[in-house]
Simulated assay, not measured.
Amino acid sequence: MPNSDSNITSDSKKTFLQTNMSLAIGAAVIAVSSGLLGYSVGHRQGLTVVGYDADAEQLVEVVQKQKTELAAMHKSLNTAVQERDVAVSNSNDLYLAVNKARDEQEQSENLGVLYREVLRQRGGIALAVQHLAIKPLPDNAFEYQLDLMQVNPGKRNASGTVEMRLIQGTEVMTVPMDDKNFNFENNERLTGRWTMPKGFTPNFIEVRLNGPATPVVRRFSWSKGQPVENQSAFLSEIPQAEANAN
């Protein structure tokens, strides 16, 4: 009887193991599969997070670079707008100044015409030296600017020649003139340059106008100013300097 019971028990265990073996194997397979699946998913998620961080950092750099470029462009735009506004303001001021100067010149010319007509009615003004300017230049050179005028009652032109002489004691030097002829109705300006001989310092400069009528002679005392360092290419742009008249 004991053997019989033992056999029954052994047989029951074998039957239980055989019956549940497939379930155990399935459970093990599921457990391993779950572990592998979890590792795979976690690994992939980890790679995805690392890739996202790298992309985000690169995106931040690109955005920062664009901000810097936009700031530089904005600054350049503001500078350009300010320069434009200044240029427009200067242009408007220059336009107003030119118009004002033109109006003043026109008024002056009109007054000149009016005065000449009054003078003509009063007998006019004979040919005369209105103004003489001498400007010292570098290398012992000098420039002259001679203004002549007349107001003839019959509106006839004044014509003739000019002679300028430098006087130092008993020595006399004639100034070489590019154009010594004049022919005008109301006024005319003669300009030119010459080189002074070394050691020659005049006491006077004399202007003689030779025409159909009696010659006109006017003498000015010589006074020398400072040389002009930046001489102009055009005589008309050099400032005037009046000499003292005797």
Score class of each variant (00 low, 15 high):
residue 131 H to Y: 14
residue 90 N to D: 13
residue 118 V to P: 02
residue 218 R to H: 05
residue 140 N to W: 11
residue 171 E to M: 10
residue 218 R to L: 07
residue 133 A to W: 09
residue 156 R to I: 10
residue 82 Q to T: 13
residue 151 V to T: 14
residue 143 E to G: 04
residue 117 E to K: 03
residue 145 Q to S: 12
residue 173 M to W: 01
residue 13 K to Y: 05
residue 199 G to N: 03
residue 177 M to W: 04
residue 39 Y to M: 11
residue 183 N to M: 02
residue 220 F to E: 06
residue 243 A to Q: 15
residue 128 A to Q: 06
residue 84 R to K: 15
residue 107 Q to E: 05
residue 161 T to D: 10
residue 138 P to T: 14
residue 190 L to V: 06
residue 156 R to N: 13
residue 161 T to M: 05
residue 217 V to E: 07
residue 90 N to G: 04
residue 180 K to V: 01
residue 214 T to L: 11
residue 202 P to F: 05
residue 226 Q to S: 06
residue 148 L to G: 02
residue 165 R to N: 12
residue 37 L to K: 00
residue 84 R to Y: 11
residue 20 N to W: 06
residue 43 H to A: 12
residue 178 D to Q: 11
residue 114 L to F: 07
residue 237 E to Q: 10
residue 103 D to S: 09
residue 225 G to Y: 04
residue 72 A to V: 10
residue 30 I to R: 10
residue 70 L to K: 04
residue 176 P to Q: 02
residue 132 L to N: 00
residue 214 T to Q: 12
residue 230 N to K: 11
residue 47 L to S: 12
residue 49 V to H: 11
residue 132 L to V: 04
residue 166 L to E: 13
residue 219 R to C: 02
residue 65 K to G: 02
residue 110 N to G: 10
residue 196 M to F: 09
residue 8 I to N: 05
residue 53 D to R: 09
residue 231 Q to F: 06
residue 204 F to N: 03
residue 115 Y to D: 03
residue 118 V to N: 07
residue 229 E to I: 10
residue 172 V to T: 14
residue 236 S to M: 08
residue 186 N to R: 06
residue 202 P to W: 02
residue 33 S to D: 09
residue 135 K to Y: 05
residue 196 M to L: 15
residue 172 V to M: 13
residue 76 S to Q: 13
residue 86 V to N: 15
residue 38 G to E: 08
residue 31 A to K: 04
residue 120 R to A: 07
residue 194 W to H: 09
residue 61 E to L: 15
residue 116 R to V: 00
residue 158 A to W: 01
residue 147 D to R: 15
residue 215 P to Y: 02
residue 109 E to S: 06
residue 34 S to Y: 12
residue 121 Q to C: 06
residue 17 L to W: 08
residue 65 K to Y: 01
residue 22 S to M: 00
residue 138 P to C: 14
residue 76 S to L: 11
residue 178 D to S: 14
residue 34 S to F: 11
residue 2 P to E: 08
residue 145 Q to N: 10
residue 150 Q to V: 01
residue 32 V to I: 15
residue 77 L to H: 15
residue 133 A to K: 03
residue 27 A to P: 03
residue 16 F to R: 01
residue 139 D to R: 15
residue 222 W to S: 03
residue 95 Y to R: 13
residue 91 S to G: 15
residue 62 V to F: 00
residue 71 A to S: 08
residue 5 D to H: 01
residue 175 V to K: 00
residue 140 N to C: 12
residue 28 A to T: 07
residue 115 Y to H: 09
residue 174 T to G: 10
residue 12 S to F: 10
residue 30 I to S: 14
residue 7 N to T: 14
residue 214 T to C: 05
residue 41 V to A: 11
residue 18 Q to K: 09
residue 43 H to Q: 11
residue 14 K to D: 01
residue 160 G to C: 12
residue 111 L to G: 01
residue 65 K to L: 04
residue 64 Q to C: 06
residue 142 F to M: 12
residue 70 L to I: 07
residue 103 D to W: 03
residue 102 R to L: 06
residue 206 E to R: 09
residue 147 D to K: 15
residue 66 Q to S: 15
residue 44 R to G: 07
residue 34 S to R: 13
residue 74 H to R: 12
residue 142 F to I: 14
residue 99 N to E: 12
